[in-house]
Amino acid sequence: MTALPPPAPPLALLAVTGLEQSFGGVMALAGVSFRVAEGLIYAVIGPNGAGKTTLFNALCGFYRPSAGSIRFADRELLGLPPHRIAACGIGRTFQNLQLFFNMSVVENVMVGCHLRARASLLAAALRLPGVRRQERHLRAWSMEALELCELADRAAQPAGALPYGLMKRVEIARALAAKPRLLLLDEPAAGLNDTETLALRELIARIRASGVTVLLVEHHMPLVMGVSDRLLVLDYGSVLAEGTPADIQADPRVVAAYLGGAVSYAV
């Protein structure tokens, strides 16, 4: 018997390699590489204009990066349209609210279940028994997602009638309703007060506990340092540093470029 080869390192859920995205000569992403292991809360930080949202939009297929690779669960995502990427198991929220203001809260979340719904146009128009049964399931799934986000009592309200902090939660519930493996949160704490931010931190931990890997773009440093397992620091479209919150806070380059002085974010 020959000796077994050493065990391979655990496969990353998301592996981004050499991602490049330029807008008319400006390199918004200049060869970004990183790996996110399954089950982590992974944060991407950096000054404004560092390329964080560009990275999200590239991951979701809204931009077509000029070079690089995005492997997710052993599939290449580069070049797929957004709805196909969503079907691979990636959900997201948006920095600027993108709620469906023409629908109720629960209907918003039911759109999130779209990938789990099967209904042909004809079956839906005739409201066949299968469609009726599925509607009940979709509503129940959506209520589950709303309960996780503590929004169940708001289900019937028009999405536009909620306070801002709750609207951001509806976006999270809507993304979770699709049962993604990876959830991208784009500045979920922006515009929230301290109480809401604390609740958000608990929510992100609950989401991870339910088995969803979280990729987080956020400026709120106490939240990021408190909740993340690992961080990626971007600056001018390049990776400045990568590591645990303790590594990052100790990294002199990060301190110089971004955090601005020796500040500790012990939480």
């Binding site: 809204f62 957004p82 629908m103 039911m110 839906a124 809507r174």
Partner: peptide, 21 residues
């Protein structure tokens, strides 16, 4: 129905609708 909600989602935010699949 899912078909109709998809339509309304396109109206509400085409960007988000795509991301919901």
């Amino acid at each position: 129905s899912p078909v109709g909600r998809a339509l309304r989602a396109v109206h509400g935010s085409e960007f988000a609708a795509q991301m919901m699949g």
